[in-house]
Design a protein around this nucleic acid. Sequence first.
RNA 1: GGCGACGUAGCUCAGCUGGUGAGAGUGCUCGACUCAUAAUCGAGAGGUCGUGGGUUCGAGUCCCACCGUCGCUACCA
Length: 504
Amino acid sequence: MSRFYITTPIYYVNDAPHIGHAYTTVTADAVARWHRLLGDDTLLLTGTDEHGLKVQRAAEENGVTPIEQADVTSKRFRDVWDEIDVAYDQFIRTTESRHHHAVQELLTRAKDNGYIEKGSYAGYYCVSCEAYYTESDLVDGNCPVHERPVEWFEEENYFFKLSALEDELTDWLNSNTVFPDGKRNEALGIVKLGLEDVSITRTSIDWGVQVPWDDDHVFYVWYDALINYATAAGFGSDEAEFDKWWPEAHHIIGKDILRFHCVYWPAMLIAAGLQPPKEIHVHGFLLLGGKKLSKTGLTQIAPADLVADFGVDGFRYHFLRDVSFGPDSEFSYEGMVARYNSDLANTLGNLLSRVTTVVAKKCDGIGPAPQLDSPLAAVAAESYRTAADAWARVQPSVALEAIWNLLRETNAYLEQHEPWKLPEGSDEVKTVLGNALEVLRLAAILSSPALTRAGEAIWAAIGLEGSPLDQRLPDAAAWGGYPGGLSVTKGQPLFPRLKVDNGS
RNA sequence: GGCGACGUAGCUCAGCUGGUGAGAGUGCUCGACUCAUAAUCGAGAGGUCGUGGGUUCGAGUCCCACCGUCGCUACCA
């Protein structure tokens, strides 16, 4: 059996979950769902990053312990994922003991291999922030947060010898592992400019993973966080499990963390004697009016608000269909409404309505079987090929476009044959409606990575037992699977049209 | 300052290693239909492919410069 391991970044608990997080996570979830349809043994991982100064400080402000603080904020992410049908297999928290073990084990191996050594870190330090700043961070020579003078500080730290791995990283990046190409080139560019060793431990805080060979230090939050992908696969706790999953690791990330994932992370793995990830897929930003979602813009758009207006399916469909995975993408409420109405309400929802109505009128509500040599069969086959290829390349928008092309062809097919005008119960009317029902069966299955709920509703409406999620590709995508003789029922509109307003 | 990305129909975007008259969806106009969620189908209008050069028999697709937007990076006061 094939295996498929896919991850989202783990999100920093201090951030409020927003549509940027949701976009990444829904994409990973949809790809995972496609692989489950293929019958792959699939592991979808998401989680929260819970160490570091900011969490420690937030806890102090709230008068709770760091872990209590993290318990509350981590749950916010799980709640949102539940709201938008993200079916993760594991939700990892960096505060779990298995993760501490994994971090210590991985970095100890890197140290044993000679890639970690003690050095001294020097920089401008703000006592109030308890943090270092580079000269370019300073505002008029002062701390950018407190606007007070900084001090020149030096402390002993452990450094990761990134500079020693430039050749290995270049080779790895050239081996077809980072997508799309433009993002791979960015990573190559970073390596090409020359890598400096990086400080990976801190003595100034204690909310983190203890450095096993030196009690005074904890690992800097980034180097602890990245290792979550290995932890969840079993590193440090179940080596057999790790060996099983790790070769199939696919990371989905936003371009803001490209450097950490496409340079530092593979370097850490190489240093520890492990294999770098199989593939990293990097997406762009969601833009509001041409500008990157600012912190305020981001937090003003809560996933729950959009779900309230568009439903779970409408929410997921927008991000999967309207956003081209890779480049930056424009986000607009009006765009969401337009896409929802045209694709979900009109093309798909209305197709189901008209077919079920005509089956009721012309076939006594019993759905006929499709014609094996239907002209729609070729269209369906092409749609499937395109979609399968697109999901494999992590291009959900292309996959969904292919499925909707089949739906549009089906609407045209109905127009051409006008089953509502054909004699009741005739062979002709059965042929036409059987073909349309077959398309709906296919759509229920093939759209299910995006539409987690409509698929089930269509399935039931055309009289099929079970769930489209139980179907297995590619067999289930073969034309002719609708058996006929099933009771077809017209229900409420699948996706009621939305009136255009300015949103809120 | 260095490196890089992007700039294609009103809008959102496709356009692989250069080659028949530049595409999709949406929006708009006209027509058809009325089974259906004022849905559907057909036809049409609409683009100097940021600007200016260059390479080529031929460039949206390669090269250079410039403009615009954005990002990363720099022991730049």
